[in-house]
Amino acid sequence: MKSQLALNVSALTRNIGRGNRALVLAVALGASAMAAAPVYAQSTKIGFVSTERILRDSKPAKAAQSKIEAEFKRRDDELQKMATSLRSQAQKFDKDAPVLSESERVKRQRQLADLDSDLQRKRREFQEDFNRRRNEEFSSIVEKADAAIKKIAEQQGYDLIVQDAVTVSPKVDITDQVMKALGG
């Protein structure tokens, strides 16, 4: 038993030259696919979660950020002191430079350059350590969020949950539900 659409396509292709048969077949297939699409789309439940918002606004993310900042505060303060010291030494050098001998001026310039290199190296190390620690903390939050998303999907019958889309309708955004499941 052929469907009515298949019979109509067969009749059209017999009446049309060979060159246009492929075109007619493509149009018929496209029409049948478009006719079936709304039925499928209506039965699909889609949700959206903003990972950025979860990692910025959720209670676990804020707690992790505070914890990391507390861990790195002492090193950050040391870097600030080094930068302040370097600035004051550079200002003193600029003020003293006209009266310094050539050898003394070169010696102090070298010392300032060494201090600056040391400061830059320590800043890079600090930033790398900070980022590594932050990634460790946030990866556990992402794992918990993924588990919460899966649980919400199962409980509420979602077929698809998308993270980080370009544009999203607020009616499919379930980020608040995920944040609530994470504890706020």
Rank of each mutant, 00 (worst) to 15 (best):
M1D: 03
A6H: 06
N8M: 05
S10N: 07
S10W: 03
S10Q: 10
A11W: 03
L12D: 11
G19M: 09
A22G: 08
L29A: 13
S32G: 06
A33W: 06
M34Q: 11
A35H: 08
A37G: 03
Y40Q: 07
Q42V: 00
S43W: 06
F48P: 02
T51G: 03
E52C: 00
R53T: 04
I54R: 04
D57C: 02
S58W: 10
S58H: 08
K62M: 09
A64G: 04
E71Y: 10
K73N: 10
R75D: 09
D77P: 05
K81I: 02
T84L: 15
Q91F: 05
F93Q: 04
D96Y: 11
A97Q: 12
P98L: 13
V99A: 14
E102P: 10
V106C: 09
K107I: 00
R108L: 14
Q111W: 04
Q120L: 07
Q120G: 05
E128K: 13
N131K: 12
R132A: 12
S139Q: 09
S140W: 11
V142R: 13
A145P: 01
A148W: 02
Q155A: 14
Q155K: 15
Q155S: 12
L160F: 08
I161W: 02
Q163F: 07
Q163R: 12
V168F: 00
K171Q: 11
K171M: 06
V172F: 01
Q177H: 06
K180N: 07
